[in-house]
Structures are given as C-alpha cells and as structure tokens.
C-alpha cells in the first residue's frame, strides 16, 4: 500500500537521503505498520472533536518584558560553521 516511489517522495519531504535498499525496506515495513493502523477506520468518530492536549491546563501567557541570559558566543558555540557571529551554510540560492 506504500510503494518505493511513495517512500522516496516522503523521504524527500523529510529531507532524508535513502538508498534503493533502504527505500525498499521502508516500503515493506511502513506498509506493514500502515496495514495495522488502518484498523482506525473501524472506530466511529462521527461528531468527535479531535484532541491535541489531553490534560486540563489553563493557558498562562508571558509578560512582554525583555530578558536575555546568554551572550552571543554561547548561542553559536555549537554551530558547525560560522563567520563572525553568523551561521554559515552552503548556498541557499545556487
């Protein structure tokens, strides 16, 4: 129910490079899992509101007060490549 082409399309959306063998393997495994998941179709959800947050939590907002705890060095220290305090990446426009 999910073939290799579909797997490759999904992998592209998710920015995952897959080789042929991985694509075939995922096609089979995901088909198995989705085959199982299709049992959801049996549940009668007519008129049911979808749920995202499962606990009764009151919304609390943040006050509009500026705060900064870290220096710029701390924030970019994990970056693989920088130029000054900017993050460097391969060309966005090629």
């Amino acid at each position: 129910m999910i073939d290799k082409d579909k797997v490759l399309h999904i992998a592209k959306l998710a920015r995952l490079h897959l080789n042929e063998q991985e694509a075939s393997q995922y096609a089979k495994q995901l088909s198995d899992v989705l085959g199982y998941i299709d049992k959801l179709n049996q549940a009668d959800t007519q008129g049911v509101e979808p749920m995202v947050t499962a606990s009764p939590i009151e919304t609390v907002y943040r006050a509009d007060e500026p705060k900064m705890d870290l220096g710029v060095e701390e924030k970019i220290k994990n970056a693989p490549e920088t130029s000054g305090h900017l993050i460097k990446v391969p060309p966005v426009v090629s």
Partner: peptide, 18 residues
Amino acid sequence: VRYGHRSEDAKTLEDLYC
C-alpha cells in the same frame, strides 16, 4: 545548521539536509 552533526558531503543546501 546551528548545532549537531553536519555532513561533510554537503555542497548544496539539499545535500546538507538530506
């Protein structure tokens, strides 16, 4: 981009991600 592993095989942005 900002932290963690970055592929050395990344000449384009798409390569970087994938």
